[in-house]
């Protein structure tokens, strides 16, 4: 069976600077696939290209057998790809509940919005307690939970996480990564970009190493964890 998400030979430029060079990867249904790499390697760019926010110059992106070329970001979302962008982009002066409701505005999501909200509250009970609170007044960890909950509102098949634990206290980061694990166990497919290389390799079935816009290595999480180059460059061992 072919993978849920397939990226083939992606080239992307910012002006004259090439941000992605012939990037190819596959995300099989039901798996967690991690992308690791240093700052500026092109991880966020890759996610934004898949989401339809950046336009690649060459290459193909296919989701569930469908070519995403030329689709706008709202069309991509409506096919079932959600993203939790870097930096917890919640709407600060809207309440928790309003933030969640905004996640379910797509045509594909409206019908199941109620159940999706209950699911989000069940996954993060603290959101249910704070449903009337303004999102901007919550802690970083709570905002990240809200961002994840909001992405669930669209009832996606694939969620792309961009640095979900960035800037969070270790315990909170652990909770967030645990939630990602739980979502995967429920059948959601996940593409994870995470600066915490050790953890992301441990929870992913497959991982790619991105350097200067190129995929330089790939393998199962365990393989990469044992690889000397990875250990030296990213784990400091």
């Amino acid at each position: 069976m072919s993978a849920l998400l397939q990226v083939e030979g992606l080239d992307l430029y910012y002006g004259d600077a090439q941000a992605l060079v012939q990037v190819s990867l596959e995300v099989p249904e039901g798996e967690i696939v991690a992308i690791v790499g240093a700052n500026g390697a092109g991880k966020s760019t890759l996610i934004r290209a898949i989401a339809g926010i950046e336009r690649p110059r060459a290459g193909r992106i296919r989701f569930a057998g469908r070519d995403l070329a030329g689709l706008d970001s709202h069309e991509v979302c409506n096919l079932g790809i959600a993203q939790v962008a870097e930096g917890r982009q919640v709407f600060p002066s809207l309440t928790v509940e309003e933030n969640l409701e905004l996640g379910a505005m797509l045509p594909r999501a409206r019908a199941g919005a109620r159940r999706a909200m209950q699911d989000a509250y069940a996954l993060f009970p603290t959101l249910a307690e704070r449903r009337r609170q303004l999102a901007g007044t919550m802690s970083g960890g709570e905002q990240q939970m809200l961002a994840i909950g909001r992405s669930l509102m669209a009832q996606p098949e694939l969620i792309m996480f961009d640095e979900p634990s960035l800037g969070l206290a270790p315990l909170v980061a652990k909770e967030v990564l645990h939630a990602i694990h739980v979502l995967n166990a429920r059948g959601l497919t996940i593409l994870l970009v995470e600066q915490n290389v050790a953890v992301s390799l441990r929870i992913s079935q497959h991982a790619y190493v991105l350097e200067n816009g190129r995929i330089v290595m790939s393998g199962s999480g365990e393989q990469l964890l044992r690889d000397d180059r990875v250990r030296q460059a990213y784990l400091g061992l």
Binding site: H74, C77, A85, Q89, F91, P92, L106, S151
Partner: peptide, 11 residues
């Protein structure tokens, strides 16, 4: 509030 986030939600 946040145009990027709105876009990421499919608006």
């Amino acid at each position: 509030e946040d145009e990027e986030a709105a876009q990421a939600l499919g608006i």
